[in-house]
Amino acid sequence: MTFQVPVIDIAPYVAGGSAEERAAVARAIDAACSEVGFIQILGHGIDPVVQRGLADALDEFFALDLETKKTFRTPPGVNRGYSAPKSESLSLSLGVESASRMNDFFEAFNVGAAQSDYPGVELDAENYAENLWPVSAAPGFQPRVQAYFAEAKRVANTMTDIFADALGLPAGFFDAFTGHSLDVLRMNNYALPPGTVDLDGELTGMGEHTDYGIVTVLWADQVRGLQVLGADGSWNDVSPADGALLINLGDLTARWTNERWMSTLHRVKPPIVDGTIERRRSAAFFHDGDVDAVIATLPSCVSAEHPNLYEPVTVGEHIAAKLAGSRAGVSNAGAAREAARVLAAAAR
């Protein structure tokens, strides 16, 4: 069977569709989340001008010299600022010990929801760190990224509205878990200067991993590289259709649904053309939930045939273990189920 990522038009939830139209979208989302875990969405309502602005912002920052970019680094525990090539290993977020060196060659810049975005809420400074903007080095970066961040957040909230309907939950169910959500936009650049990577070796743009939170909204170039693990253990190339955003589920949604919906493993393998790495850009908006929210399996997803697979966990505990793997090189011992899928795929 050919692997396909379903294309779903969510306009009825964005532009005021009828109850019947919204129900049809919810059914399609339920099927996609159950069978694939990745979705392409149309009708999301993000202006192409805002998307082009994001692409221009990435170009402006990543064109800077490496030493300048490194001045915007933060400690591993702070999910903000610049990550240099080969400073991370996403596979370690799953506890896969074979990925014991920091070898992912992408570079990235992270911005996220800060303490100042949630006035009146007492939040810790590490999880809700203020952003580090390259104001003088890349003056067009901040306004363009902030414009896209706001739109991606709106799309993520729309997706959780659809999720509630698809799972038969009360309208607004996810609002109680996302009032001060740990939202992060990670902008990625897959390219390296000549001579900095051995093209004869096994290259990893971004190692195999699941996303950590509730839902991810991904903007990406139409360039090969993203690969998704199919149910048969095969890796499959995925590229967005014209005008589409890619949506995938995070670990917290898999926990909530007792794996009725799956947090799908994916990776980035570098496209190489005429002996050089073809540049690829992407920007992943991670909608992760409130740091103190407790995620426990939905009772409707537990039965005699499907016993509960997960103990309750706070969003903060779960995210901290994942980031300690990817950014600080500490293997995550709490991701045994995801790691088993990685190792099974590698054995094929």
Score class of each variant (00 low, 15 high):
Met1Asn: 09
Val7Trp: 04
Ile8His: 01
Ile8Leu: 02
Ala15Val: 11
Glu20Val: 12
Arg22Asp: 06
Ala26Thr: 07
Ala26Cys: 03
Ala26Val: 10
Glu35Thr: 14
Val36Trp: 15
Phe38Thr: 02
His44Val: 06
His44Pro: 01
Asp56Met: 09
Glu60Cys: 08
Glu60Ser: 07
Glu67Ser: 14
Glu67Gly: 08
Phe72Cys: 10
Gly81Glu: 13
Gly81Ala: 08
Tyr82Phe: 00
Ala84Thr: 06
Lys86Thr: 02
Ser87Lys: 05
Ser87His: 03
Glu88Gly: 00
Ser89Glu: 02
Leu90Val: 06
Leu94Ser: 11
Val96Glu: 10
Ser98Ile: 06
Asn103Gln: 09
Phe105Gln: 04
Phe106Leu: 03
Ala113His: 07
Gln115Phe: 14
Gly120Ile: 14
Val121Asn: 08
Glu122Ala: 14
Glu126Trp: 09
Tyr128Thr: 14
Leu132Phe: 15
Leu132Val: 15
Pro134Phe: 08
Ala138Met: 06
Gly140Lys: 09
Gln146Tyr: 14
Phe149Asn: 08
Ala152Val: 14
Lys153Ile: 11
Val155Leu: 07
Asp161Ser: 11
Phe163Gly: 02
Asp165Gly: 03
Ala166Pro: 02
Gly172Arg: 06
Phe173Asp: 01
Leu182Asn: 12
Asp183Asn: 15
Asn188Cys: 11
Asn189Pro: 02
Thr196Met: 07
Val197His: 08
Leu199Tyr: 13
Gly205Glu: 05
His209Trp: 14
Ile214Pro: 00
Ala220Lys: 13
Gly225Met: 00
Leu226Gly: 07
Gln227Ala: 06
Ser234Arg: 08
Asn236Glu: 05
Asp242Gly: 09
Gly250Lys: 06
Leu252Arg: 07
Arg255Trp: 01
Trp256Val: 03
Asn258Thr: 07
Arg267Cys: 04
Val268Trp: 12
Pro270Ile: 05
Ile272Lys: 02
Val273Asn: 01
Val273Lys: 01
Asp274Val: 02
Arg279Thr: 15
Ala284Asp: 04
Phe285Asn: 14
Phe286Tyr: 07
Asp288Lys: 11
Val302Tyr: 01
Ser303Leu: 13
His306Arg: 13
Glu311Thr: 15
Glu311Gly: 10
Glu311Cys: 10
Thr314Ala: 08
Lys322Asp: 00
Ser326Ile: 13
Gly329His: 04
Ser331Trp: 01
Ala335Gly: 11
Ala335Glu: 12
Ala340Phe: 04
Arg341Pro: 12
Leu343Ala: 04
Leu343Trp: 03
Ala347Arg: 10
